[in-house]
Structure formats: structure tokens, C-alpha cells
Design a protein around this nucleic acid. Sequence first.
DNA 1: CATGAATGAGTCTTCATTCAT
DNA 2: CATGAATGAAGACTCATTCAT
Lengths: 190, 190, 190, 190
Amino acid sequence: MKPRDDKKIQQVYKATLKLVKLKGLAGVTMGEIAKEADIATGTLYIYFKNKTELINSLFTSCRNASAAVYFKNYDTSIPFKKGLKTIWLNLLNYRIKKFDEALFVDQCYHSPFITETTREMTKKLFTPLFSLMEAGKKQRLVKNEDTILLLTFMAGSINETVKHTHYAGRKLSKETIEQMFQMCWDGLKR
Amino acid sequence: MKPRDDKKIQQVYKATLKLVKLKGLAGVTMGEIAKEADIATGTLYIYFKNKTELINSLFTSCRNASAAVYFKNYDTSIPFKKGLKTIWLNLLNYRIKKFDEALFVDQCYHSPFITETTREMTKKLFTPLFSLMEAGKKQRLVKNEDTILLLTFMAGSINETVKHTHYAGRKLSKETIEQMFQMCWDGLKR
Amino acid sequence: MKPRDDKKIQQVYKATLKLVKLKGLAGVTMGEIAKEADIATGTLYIYFKNKTELINSLFTSCRNASAAVYFKNYDTSIPFKKGLKTIWLNLLNYRIKKFDEALFVDQCYHSPFITETTREMTKKLFTPLFSLMEAGKKQRLVKNEDTILLLTFMAGSINETVKHTHYAGRKLSKETIEQMFQMCWDGLKR
Amino acid sequence: MKPRDDKKIQQVYKATLKLVKLKGLAGVTMGEIAKEADIATGTLYIYFKNKTELINSLFTSCRNASAAVYFKNYDTSIPFKKGLKTIWLNLLNYRIKKFDEALFVDQCYHSPFITETTREMTKKLFTPLFSLMEAGKKQRLVKNEDTILLLTFMAGSINETVKHTHYAGRKLSKETIEQMFQMCWDGLKR
DNA sequence: CATGAATGAGTCTTCATTCAT
DNA sequence: CATGAATGAAGACTCATTCAT
């Protein structure tokens, strides 16, 4: 008997990301995904109950993957600024390298496909980031403001910059990246 | 194609924005737009050749409106920091008050609906912002980095914050807004 | 403006009956119904929300039509046996002339298409028949048994005979019909 | 195509009957039948070439089984009325006990699944019934009418009554059954 | 043989667009 | 101009059948 093939799920994910990047979440059809993933339309429905579930599943997968990457090389014992920079860099690099994943997640976030449950579940993944910023505040290294505000400030500038760079067809040089972090740090620091 | 009944066009625009916010660009149909705008489906095609044109038209309209707002109370004679804050505030307020417009524009930007022409045209609207930042650099008030980088840094943090606040169902207080600007300024300033 | 066309509903009904007779409720598709009714598939969905509703609607229509026919030329003042024969003949003639309607109703009755509500509603149409038989019992003209039993006895023999005759490609002669009624009457009478 | 594992075939038959009763011939799929029979879909195709053959095979099986039952305890030496009652009771009991088989056969009879050959073949099974009634006519015990007419009269009332009773969730008492036969006999007898 | 994953033709249904009124 | 019924191509999903294991 032919066992269920995990590789196929990966093919489907990859195909979906490619197509969403190309045509937006709006215009992606199950037929196209299947074709791009090199399987039959019916096969899609063996692995995913329906379109909504496929999207939610990929969404969750992307969020999990990103969360894992965000905290690479990081642990709470590292001095604050260095720890922050590590995560900041992870975030930036993820956004650059997995641009299509990030884009997909952004497009999905407030689409009718993503269920409230899925949204909620993925939120929890980012609590370490929250704790880090709280620590920075306690050490009086960053401004004493609402933690969420500080985090969105940080994330926002990264996201927008990566998006702009990507669509302009550019690359971010090491120097530019250093400058970007400097701006972020200057904005946050007390 | 576009007769004078401007009121109907506004109804259509309003309906579209509402629906896109509710169901994403993906799930909006011409029929629903018509119903929400309280006209017949056929009537839509009197004012807009097809769906693509409707979207593009609204997109352009939003971008024009936003550009107009961005530079309210601003002229080049105002000292740099004050000018910057004026525009920064305009930007923030626009994103807050016209959240659905901003969202629509974001969703459209990389969708298959928006033609390259439309995308290009709207870019030009923001050259004054570009000039302002260049001036800041010349006056050695802001960091000597790529202007685009400085602008995306600024825009990114605004966008992300507004989005987060909106979906969290919160309001930004005067103090928070001051703090946000402070962070932005600290990030930019030399 | 083109108003909704009641004639189309009749076309659809007719087409459905024809196809169900030909291929059974099992194998009838919306596409075929549309083609047979000489309209586009989409048009079907203007008049009926979905396949289930189309079937239920036609079912109800058939039941109403049949009920109306059953009691033609009949009123409660007519002497029992004559009244019974009138209805018996109406029933028989309906089954013969509207064979496809009767067949459709039979096929539907216990199919997953027909909702419990629809089934219940159509039951009420046949209460006059019930009352008639009760009257017969009171007058001690028919056997003193459960009314439903008497009615199914009567209906069953009609249905089966008509079905058999139809598929055998025969016609029922006047004499045969008289004989049939005689059998029915002999079975019922006290 | 049909190896010896007769148990599996019986499982499939049982599953099919159950599902057809539940959802109508229309809505039964090979996948469901397999699942209900506790085998794999592919296995179904080891025992039956395709769906049509499965249905036809079960149809024939049911008809054979019913024919066997009909003439239980009967032989031509038994006096007419007693013989008739024997068969009548067999018929009734079969319809009651094997309600799902009877229903399945009814639903199939004019469906596109049953081939003309299958239909023809099963007709022959009921010739003894035909002969019996002919004998009754010769003995001048039953009305001198078309034999088929007499038989459908008899069968029709049984079928309809059983169907009604079943769906009403009732049981037929001994007395009711006696009354039913009395009605049938009164209808037939000269 | 048995399995259930894989296939793709075929269903139901939707929706952008057209057209008769 | 305005209407909403009509159209049919296209999309989501199903299911009889095949096939690799």
C-alpha cells in the first residue's frame, strides 16, 4: 500500500506560496495549486479537507517555522542589547529569505480564510519576544512604554523595509542592515 | 463610461471598502458591491467597464486622497522637525481615520487587479515626502542614509502600529502618539 | 427590466420529470435539467437556491396538483360509494395521465433530497380522503378496520397496477377499470 | 472477478442495503459501501467489476432470495385458498423482515443501473405465482380477469401497506394481518 | 489478495458580464 | 440610464476507478 506522502504536503505548500506571491490570495485556485504541485486536484483533497483548511494549515506551518527561526541563537542569559540584535537579525533574515512565507502570512492574517482559532493559536508563539522587551524596560535600557508599542515599532520598520527592498529588486547590504538596526535601537533606547 | 452621477460612484467606493475590510479582496463580488451600494448589478457596469477598472479606480482615488491629506498644513518653509511631525501626524491620522482605505490599498498593491500603470502613477504622489527627508539630511538633522530607507522606517512603524491597534480594538491616546513620534524621531535623528 | 418568468419554472419542472423518469432520481444533474429546459445552468440558480430546493419545490408542486385532482367532482354530499368511486377514478386517472409526476413523487419520498418539513406538509393534503373512509365506516358500508389500512389497500392496488401497465406498454380499458374498482370495492365493503 | 470469499460479498451486500435505505440509491458511493463493509475501496473492485455490476448482482441476489421465500411451505397440491394464503403470508413477511431488500429492489427497478437483461431474468422467478392464480380462475374461485391484474392487485396492497407501516414505525398485529388477507381475498374471489 | 492513495472526469455552484425591458 | 434576469465559463469539491506497494 502507498502510504501518505509527507513530501506532497511540502510540494503543496511550496506551490501555494509561489502562487499567492504571484497572484495574491485572491486569485489562487485549487486547480492551479494542484498543477503547480504536480498532483491531481483530487489528491489535494486527500491531504486537506478543503481550501480553507489548506490555507489555515499552511498559515500555521509558516507561523511555527518563523517563530522557531526568530529565537535562533538566542537565550535569556544573553545581555539585552545583544539578545535584541540577535532576534532583530533573525526577524530580518527570515523576512528576506522566506519572503513568500511572510507575504502569505500577511495576506492571510485578516482574510476570511483564517479562522479565529488559528489566529489566536499562532499569537502565543511570540511571547519570548514580549518577555525580552519587558526585561529591557526593567533594565531601563529601552523607553518605558507599552511593550506592544515597542514591538510593533520594531517589527513595522523591518517589514516595510524588506517589502520595499524586495519589490524594488534590491538587496540589503551589511552596512544598510547595521544602519537599520541603529535606527531601531535609537528609537527604542532610553 | 463615467457619467456625472458622482454620488453613485461614492456609494460604490464606500461599499467596496466596507466589503473588502470585511471579507478581503479575495471574497468580494460585483453583486455584493452593487447590493451594498444599493444599485443594480448592471448599473455598476455603466460606471465601471469591469471589476478590474473599478478596483483600479478606487485604488487611485484612495491614493490621491491620501496624498492630499499627507501634506495638509505643510509647506516647505516650515522648519524641518515641525514639518516632519506635521506630515507624520497626517500620515498617522489618515491611517487611523481611513483605516479601510489604507487596508484596501495594501491588499490591492500586489494583487492581480492593480495594473503596473496604476501602481507607477501613484508612486509619484509622494515625492514631496522624499524631498522633505532629503532636506533633513542636508541640514544634518537626520541620519545620512538612503532616503527611501529613512522613509520606510518611518512609514513602517506607523502602519504596523495602526494596524495592531485597530484589530486590538484600542485607541491611541495623545501621550502614546507623542511617544511614537519620539521613537521615530530618535531613530531618524543624527 | 426582464421580470422573473413563471413559464421557466414550468419548463424546469417538466424537464426534471422527464429526466427522472428516464434515468431515475439518482442520475439527474443540474446541467441536464437546464439543457432540457432550454436555459443556462446559472439561470436554474436564479429560480432555485440549489438542487435540493428544486427537488423539494417540484415535489410539493406535484403533491398539490395531485391533491387538487383527487377531489375533482367530489363533495361530501355525494353518497358514499359514488363518492369513493369518483375519487378512486380521479386517483387512477391522475396516476395514468401524470405518470411521470407520480413516479417522481414515489422516487423522492424516501430520498435524502426531501426534507422532513416538505414530507410533513404534503401529508395534510389528503385528509379529505381520510374523512371519506371514516364516513364509510360509520355508515357500516366498509369494513370496520383502521382507516389508514383501508386507504393503503386502495391506493396500493391502484399504484401497482398503473405502474405495471405503464411499463408493459399497455392501456387500461374501460372494462378493466371497472373490474379493478369492483375488486377494490369487494375488498373494502362490509 | 469473483473469488470465493463469500463472507466479504455478504458484507458488501449488507452495507449497500443499509446505505440505500438510509440515503437512497442516488446518494450511495463506492467509498461509503467499502467503509460500511469494513474493507478497502480497492477490494470492492476485486469482487465487482464496477458499481453497475455490484448493484445488478445484489439486485439479482435479492430477487432470487425473495422468490425462494415466496414459495416456502407451498406446493401445487395444496387447496387453492390455503395455497394462496401461504404465499400471501410469505410475501408479506418477506417485505416486512427484509424491508431493506424490498426497498432496494424497488429503487433499482427503473434506475439506469439495472440492465434490461437483469430485469428480464428476474421476471421468470414468479411464474409459479402466475400458475397458482390461473388455477384459481379455472376452479372459478377467483374473478375471471387478467391474471396479471389479479396479481398486481394482490401485490400492490401488500407493498403499500408494509411501506406505510414501516415508515410510521408501527408493527402489524396478527389480527390486522388477518384483516388484510380478508380484504385481499374479498377483492379477488368470485 | 488487500490496501488506500492517486487520478481526473464530472457535479454543483458561483460570479463577472451582457442584454432585454 | 437603471434594472435584475440570463448567460456560461470557471472554481470548489466528489467519486468511480486505477495503481503502486
